[in-house]
Amino acid sequence: MNIFRLTGDLSHLAAIIILLLKIWKTRSCAGISGKSQLLFALVFTTRYLDLFTSFISLYNTSMKLIYVACSYATVYLIYMKFKATYDGNHDTFRVEFLVVPVGGLSFLVNHDFSPLEILWTFSIYLESVAILPQLFMISKTGEAETITTHYLFFLGLYRALYLINWIWRYYFEGFFDLIAVVAGVVQTILYCDFFYLYVTKVLKGKKLSLPA
């Protein structure tokens, strides 16, 4: 465990909590893509099946349980409790265009052709693109609430910090996981445009709105 990995995990946790609190406090999930949140719930479910097969550390187990619980709570709030506020008309990204190719790729390119490993690979690939329905929704409506942009910032920052963590681990531990690194690079690149808008607009006190 190095500082980049730890701050990456905490940044991920912050993003998840920010989103939950935003929905809970405002009693509304307006502007949030339920599809992205469903994909993240699927990501955590398929990745953390190893909770049943291997123990890494108390930290590892606790964080996995928290991520899974929070992602299911978020999906529950969007599709059940605050369903009336869910902006389904703008959440029109076709998720099958992500899930099907990612599913196929995880069968073809993996570390080991075993059920658990294929599901882990699927979750890594799917996570890298799971934010696309949310970004698509923002591009469609042309704006995002400031709190939603904070959520996206921490979610993007998390994978960027993991990239530094992987460089660190390569040099100091000889650890290198090509699948995670390539997917992590793709994932981080998808946030670059958003990072630019976040720094140039949101951090200067302006609302994030895109030119028509």
Partner: peptide
């Protein structure tokens, strides 16, 4: 390397 099969990251 078999290392990667035991995924110790989140």
């Amino acid at each position: 390397s078999q290392k990667v099969f035991k995924h110790d990251e989140l």
